[in-house]
């Protein structure tokens, strides 16, 4: 039996379909290390999970629990919740951190309901005060900062992907296997995953350091290519306003805003986007905002650090040429 530190933070790490740790792992372990001793939990089928456990140690997990569940990979949400319950029983952590991914937050949801733990979702940071671990939130599109705590016990906190900059130091691998008995809770059965075809080597919108977004002002699916071109010159991800998505210029997965992805990049460039509140709610926490729009009264200019009133079809090609000239 391992002795777990009194200040242990249990961190559930997502594993991608190809078997790697999800990109959120580094931030989750980084956040955990700031408030306690990170203990990673990986849910795997019997005999699997060794490589992910090594990787988790390299990202700062002091200890790694590989939870083996017979239904891992065939049942939805329940195996993860069962594993979390078993690991929490073992570790008795001060807090449980889970990625706010779709899979992660639903596992957190089931576990919190089962254990009647306090649940805080979509945190952008964690801290510790005299009473325990506190979750930091940014709500209503970043208009407010809210701190939340729980009335007793270990809080279950889901952490927004890409929101944590802190990283933990690599640790020697200390890995333990835990056989999890199925709770018998009824679960949906999952079929094969069809992986999203990634169109290019562009970064993911979530967690991207730079984002170039296009709106209705692009005018058509064909002309939206201009957004892609600027994104590629800058090494940025491609986003879009809801208007551009509704008009069919780009798939819904690119939508930035209240109903869509929330981003907080270093640089956000809005092309032909008027800046409706719905859109601003998903991007106004960006460090630097640049807007190009024909309409000088567009609300996007109220929050832009650098705004250009002009035709994006002349300004953007000139910008691309100027950036390429500097690179050369």
């Amino acid at each position: 039996m391992t002795d777990y530190s009194a200040d242990s933070i249990l961190v559930l790490l997502d594993v991608t379909p190809s078997g790697a740790l999800s990109k959120s792992a580094a931030g989750l372990l980084g956040a955990a290390a700031e408030v306690g001793t990170p203990v990673a939990l990986i849910v795997a089928a019997a005999g699997e999970g060794e490589q992910q456990a090594q990787d988790a140690a390299a990202l700062g997990a002091t200890h790694v629990i590989v939870a083996e569940h017979a239904a891992a990979g065939t049942e939805l949400t329940v195996p993860g919740a069962d594993a979390l319950a078993a690991a929490a029983e073992l570790v008795r952590p001060d807090a449980i951190l889970v990625s706010n991914s779709i899979e992660g937050r639903e596992i957190a949801a089931r576990y919190a309901a089962r254990s009647r733990s306090g649940l805080a979702v979509d945190a952008v940071g964690v801290a510790r005060d005299a009473e325990g671990v506190v979750a930091r939130h940014s709500v209503y599109g970043g208009a407010y900062n809210v701190d939340s705590a729980v009335t007793w016990g270990a809080p279950v906190i889901t952490v927004r992907e890409g929101s944590i900059d802190a990283r933990a130091e690599a640790k020697p691998a200390s890995i333990e296997r835990l056989e999890v008995a199925a709770s018998g809770r009824k679960a949906a059965v999952t079929g094969a995953l069809e992986e999203e075809v990634v169109a290019s080597s562009r970064p993911d919108l979530r967690g991207a350091a730079k984002v170039v977004s296009g709106g209705r002002g692009l005018g058509s699916e064909d002309k939206f290519v201009l957004v892609d071109q600027l994104a590629d010159v800058l090494g940025a991800a491609v986003g879009a306003s809801r208007a551009a998505v509704d008009a069919g210029y780009v798939p819904q997965s690119h939508q930035v805003g209240q109903t869509g992805v929330s981003v907080s990049p270093q640089l956000y460039i809005a092309l032909g986007i008027s800046g409706a509140i719905q859109h601003r709610a998903g991007m106004q926490t960006a460090k630097t905002i640049v807007a190009i729009n024909k309409d000088g009264d567009a609300p996007i200019f109220e929050i832009a650090d650098f705004g250009i009133v002009g035709d994006l079809f002349t300004v953007v090609p000139q910008l691309i040429a100027a950036l390429e000239a500097r690179k050369a």
Partner: peptide, 20 residues
């Protein structure tokens, strides 16, 4: 889960705006 503190962030202000 309870709220223990709450603050409103100052609204963003416009920076440079130029006409092409």
């Amino acid at each position: 889960s309870i709220v223990i503190s709450l603050g409103e962030k100052p609204p963003r202000t416009a920076g440079t705006k130029i006409v092409d």
